[in-house]
Structures are given as structure tokens and as C-alpha cells.
Design a binder for these strands. Structure first.
Lengths: 254, 254
DNA sequence: ACCTGAACACCGTTCAAGT
DNA sequence: ACCTGAACACCGTTCAAGT
């Protein structure tokens, strides 16, 4: 049904496609059936062209998928992160939430982002925006950069695990996905996994927005927690790499 | 060469395979060529059997891949996390580092873990071990569970992004991978991405062990940072989900 | 430069059949 | 229960050819 892409600029029969048109077709397939639905032949069929025509625009399928990943990142809304009125934590949350929402809306997309280097212009733009917010938060540039990666990893990783549980087809509402997890977790044998079984309700909520927000909050706490200054004063190499030394906070409440 | 799996129990011609043998063959393919090298036909060929024989043991390829993911998790070393002498932070670091190392040794594996529900026994065991450590650290059970997911997401996510940059074939040493990133980052246009360009060296080190350890440390800081107690005293639903409220720490050093 | 038909070496999966 | 041959509807990619 209406596979032919009713773009207004179509002139005669088939002429002068461009990269964007090919990526559009790929995106349509991605939205319908996830990453594995994106095939060179499918894309070609989607724009009414022979399979090998795709190779006029991309050297191989991997290049097409990278372009598709970039295309998805292009839609992320940087505005919320940029609005200077908000506290910086809210701006990080806004950016993280927007990225998550976009990726949940296209269940195949996160796998794409995690399986190719994030080095395209829109990936860079995302990092740049986040760097700006973290810089305004008072983090030193080096810390801000590391924090940037930490946050991106957290967002992409959690969406990936969320999406991994989805069946084909439309994405159920969050509360139903949580309910399904809760049900499945009833099968966990308490004699082998006592803590997991005891906390099944919380484990069921791993994929929830609340857990997502909580995680980001803990990360932000960690980024701003007071900790002993690195050995020297020079910003060159600092010795924070050694694990376990320096335990600034301590567990509280029982 | 020597594709035939020289298990000692082979009796006559071909008889009584079992699931494990099939997964073994899949693991061999995974190690040689990543996830995309794991094909039903390849696995069958690896054990000298017709392609459709695989369907005697697994209903479809997805089930085989899930079993393969479990198999990879089975090798994670829980001992370091369990040794009661160490401070709890060190134990978390040990577990995280071991998981990362295993996954870097099998570049295809992390994609496997991130594309199927982590609900097998070894996945549960990993969570249980981490829950125990976090419990001993003084986190309340509910916090410990959430923290557990936060940490797993961080480890899997960062390894996935690391691995995404790898070419086919043997994994170069970390310092070479960082150097390659540094070189590639010289192409980032400073007029569009000034902060990224300025911090290129740190960005190049995103995939380093040092960044990995730093990230885990910041997460652990966040988990133990003193923060305002949730609204009530009841451990039921707490209101921590609201973003932006509560800014326990503040950026320091300029 | 852009597009094609035809072919290559692959896939996952099913089915009816054999032991 | 376990394994097979043969077939189905697919893949990504290459090549020589056409405009």
C-alpha cells in the first residue's frame, strides 16, 4: 500500500534519486519491522528501483545503516537542553528523555546506534549540546567530556535493554510492559535468586520511565558529589583511574 | 580446519548431539566473525550435520542466539565480587571489569546481550551477585535493585559503543584504538563543534579502561551521595521520579 | 552519472520422509 | 526422537551492459 513515496518533486518516470530518498525508504522499513526489516532489496523496492541501484549511493549496506542512524539522531530535539532558564539538571533530563522517547518510537533504531561508530555530524551535535550543558553546570571541560559519554552510554544502553524485550509490531504501553515483566518474574526461583525474587516488583520496573529518570539522577549526583581532588593540581593526567580508592559518600539508611 | 568438534564422547557416526554442542558451534562462529557470522547453516556445518537439524534443538535462530548469550554470561567470574575482604566499591569494580573484559574478548557478544531479554539463569545470577554487593554496601533493597540495573546498563552500553568501532578481525590494543580515534577526531570542524574539538583527546579516550573505571566510580558516587530523604518514610512509592528537584551536590573546581 | 538484468553465493525455515 | 534431502522465499553484492 502506497509504497512509492509520493514526494511532490517526482517528474517523469524514475530519475535522480538522492541519498536522502534512499535513507527515507530505509527509515520506513525500520519503522515497520525493526533493523532486520531493512534490506537493500527492500529499500530498492520501496522506491521502485532495481536492488543494485542502491549501490550508486552507498558502497554497502553498512554505509546505508550508518546514514540511517544519523538520520534518526537528526530528529533529536536540542532545544529543551538549550533553554537557558532551566536548571542544568532539568536540561540534561530533557535531552535524555527526548532521546529515549525518539528511540522507543523506533524500536529498531537503538540497535543501529550501538552497532556503528557514533561519528556523524548529528552524533557530534548531540555530544556538543550535552557538553555545553555540563560545562554550564560547573564541570571542568575534561570532566564534562567524560560525563557526556557516561550519560550517552546510560541512555542508549537502557533503551537497548528496554527494546530487547519487545515483540514485533506496535510497542505496548509502559505499564503493560512492566506488568508483563512482573508476571514473568514470578517464575524466578527464590531458592536460587532470593534477592531478585524479593525485589521482583522493582526489577519489573527496570524498563520504566521512573527507573530511567532515577538512573540519570544518580549519575548527575555522582558527577557533582564532592570528592577528594586528584593528586596534583595539573589538569593533565589525573590518577582517578585507580579503583576503590576514595570513598566520598557512604551508604545511609540502615 | 578441525571444524568437527573433537569431543571425547563421539561414538559412531553422528548421534545424540545435545543443545550444548550446538551452542558450542555457535560460539566458535561468534568468536571468528562476530554476530553476523552466526548462521544456522554455519552452526550445522560446524558440527557436521544438515542445516535443519538445528531445529531439533532450537525452535528458531532467535532461541539459539539467546542460548548463546546465556553461554557467554556463564563465563563471568563472580568470585571477585564475592570476596568479602574487599571494600564493596572494589568488588563492584571487579565484577564490572571482568564482564567488560569477557565481552571485549568476544566482540560479537555484547550485541547479543543487548538484543534479547536478559532473563536466563546466568543473567539472573549476575544480577543476584550485584544485588548482594550493593546490599552489603548499605543500600536499601529497592535502591540496590535500581542501582543494579544502572550498573549493568553502564557496562553493557559502554562495551557496545566500544565494540561498534571495531573492524572485523582481531581486536587491536586499547592504546591503538584510542590513537585511531584521536586521529579521526582531528577531522571534527572546530567552528561547528568547538567543545568537542577542544576536548578531542578526552573524547578519544571514551573507549579506554580509564573512562570505563571513571564512569563506574561516578555512578558509585551517585549511589552513595547524601540526598534529601524521599517524601515519606514508607519504602513503598517514593517521589524521586520528578526530575530536577533536589540538587545535593554542586560542581566544584571553577 | 545513473540505472538495469542476470547471476553468484549465501540466508532461515518448512515439509515430507526416513530411522 | 532425531536426522535428512529438497525446496521455498529470501538475502548482499558483483559484473557487464545500457542510457
Amino acid at each position: 500500500m502506497a509504497e512509492r513515496a509520493a514526494g511532490p518533486g517526482r517528474v517523469g518516470r524514475r530519475r535522480a534519486l538522492d541519498e536522502a530518498e534512499v535513507v527515507d525508504a530505509a527509515l520506513r522499513l525500520l519503522d515497520r519491522g525493526g533493523v532486520e526489516a531493512v534490506s537493500v532489496r527492500g529499500v530498492a523496492a520501496g522506491i521502485g528501483v532495481a536492488p543494485n541501484t542502491v549501490y550508486t549511493y552507498f558502497p554497502d549496506k553498512a554505509a546505508l545503516l550508518r546514514a540511517l542512524a544519523e538520520r534518526v539522531l537528526a530528529e533529536v530535539d536540542h532545544a529543551a537542553a538549550g533553554s537557558a532558564g532551566l536548571p542544568w539538571r532539568d536540561r540534561v533530563h530533557a535531552l535524555a528523555a527526548d532521546l529515549r522517547a525518539r528511540l522507543l518510537a523506533r524500536p529498531g533504531a537503538v540497535g543501529l546506534l550501538l552497532s556503528a561508530p557514533m561519528d556523524g555530524p548529528h552524533a557530534l551535535a548531540l555530544g556538543e549540546t550535552l557538553l555545553a550543558v555540563l560545562g554550564e553546570a560547573g564541570l571542568a571541560p575534561r570532566e564534562a567530556a567524560r560525563a557526556c559519554y557516561l550519560l550517552i552510554v546510560q541512555v542508549l544502553g537502557s533503551v537497548a535493554l528496554e527494546v530487547a524485550e519487545l515483540e514485533e509490531g506496535p510497542v505496548p504501553a509502559e505499564r503493560e510492559r512492566v506488568a508483563a515483566r512482573r508476571e514473568a518474574l514470578r517464575a524466578v526461583p527464590a531458592e536460587h535468586f532470593p534477592r531478585t525474587a524479593a525485589m521482583a516488583d522493582t526489577v519489573a520496573e527496570y524498563i520504566s520511565t521512573e527507573q530511567f529518570t532515577w538512573s540519570i539522577d544518580r549519575v548527575l549526583d555522582g558527577l557533582t558529589a564532592v570528592r577528594p581532588a586528584p593528586t596534583g593540581d595539573a589538569p593533565g593526567t589525573d590518577g582517578t583511574g585507580a579503583p576503590g580508592t576514595g570513598t566520598p559518600g557512604r551508604g545511609r539508611r540502615s
